[in-house]
């Protein structure tokens, strides 16, 4: 099949933030032999190609553009949506910077041929089961990278995230302990991000707020792909909590102490490499995407002779 990822609604700053979400899905599909393209230009392919959009419709008119394309005259279209946020998370869906986000999403959902969600964020209330699939993140060979040897790791703890007030407190506490701390800041391009990760003894995965219910599977998977030793804040009781198997997971209060101990552990780098091997042998992004393709629309696309 041919999947075209239309990412114009993230242009341009958002494109940098969604790499870790989109790339494993793209390469999981490619590993299954599907053709995947992506772009920001307005011309979109019709059925039997599938157009995939990652949710974020805040710009005025962006939801209308999608609906006009999907429902307008001309040949049949196939629309898929990747949903990455908890519908009940007011930090995101109620953020005053994005006043149209939730309403636009709820307007588009009924018109999607399929919806892929990466967190269990309440979508089953808005999408019938025959059009909804959950995507677990798994290992994908195309995104495997290698960090530096242990002796060359000059960063003790790397925050793989933007630094807000909650994370800043921890950042400062770790620095006071004498650890060398850095952050990817959320916007850095690959060449800098991978450089920082490859130099880090620990990669830190901490939620942005106490009210956040779900961990960030894309962050954990990105760090595991690089063989990083991940220290996760332990809080998620959903199926996403399965990813804690591959991290050093502790409650927020214990993170500082654990980072201090782990950063000095002689086998800190080996732990991450071992976790990646477990992640590789126990999970597969291609297999997970195969399960997400079990929805009826994909049988219809295949029967239509999708390229």
């Amino acid at each position: 099949m041919h999947f075209h990822f239309q990412l114009a609604n993230h242009y341009f700053a958002g494109l940098y933030r969604i790499d870790d979400i989109v790339s494993p899905i793209v390469w999981g599909l490619r590993a299954l032999g599907h053709q995947v393209t992506s772009g920001i230009l307005p011309h979109l392919p019709s059925w039997p190609s599938a157009v995939v959009i990652q949710e974020f419709f805040d710009r005025e008119g962006s939801a209308e553009e999608v609906l006009n394309w999907k429902l307008g005259p001309g040949p049949r279209k196939c629309l898929g949506l990747i949903c990455t946020e908890d519908l009940n998370d007011d930090l995101v869906m109620g953020d005053p910077r994005w006043p149209r986000r939730r309403d636009s999403l709820l307007r588009i959902l009924p018109h999607c041929d399929f919806v892929w969600t990466i967190i269990p964020g309440g979508y089953e209330l808005h999408v019938p089961p025959e059009r909804l699939a959950f995507i677990d993140y798994g290992y994908v060979e195309a995104l495997r990278r290698d960090g530096l040897p242990a002796a060359q790791r000059d960063i003790d703890v790397l925050f793989y995230a933007t630094i807000n007030e909650r994370r800043q407190r921890l950042y400062d506490a770790l620095t006071r302990q004498g650890l060398r701390v850095a952050a990817t800041r959320g916007y850095l391009p690959d060449y800098i991000r991978y450089n920082l990760m490859s130099r880090a003894r620990l990669v830190l995965d901490v939620r942005r707020g106490d009210d956040v219910r779900f961990t960030s599977p894309s962050r954990i998977a990105a760090a595991l792909q690089l063989g990083s030793t991940v220290v996760s804040e332990l809080f998620d009781t959903s199926r996403l909590g399965n990813l804690y198997k591959y991290t050093e997971a502790h409650p927020f209060e214990a993170i500082e102490r654990q980072c201090l101990a782990l950063a000095q552990a002689p086998d800190v780098v080996e732990r991450g490499l071992a976790a990646r091997e477990r992640f590789r042998s126990e999970t597969s992004m291609a297999r997970n995407m195969g399960e997400a393709l079990a929805l009826p629309v994909f049988k219809e696309l295949a029967a239509a002779g999708a390229p």
């Binding site: 341009f12 494109l15 940098y16 790499d19 992506s38 772009g39 920001i40 230009l41 391009p189 060449y191």
Partner: peptide, 16 residues
Amino acid sequence: VSATFGVLPDYMKLEL
């Protein structure tokens, strides 16, 4: 025809 527009991140630019 397509373009990188000078600002696309790696995963899109290299794909193009």
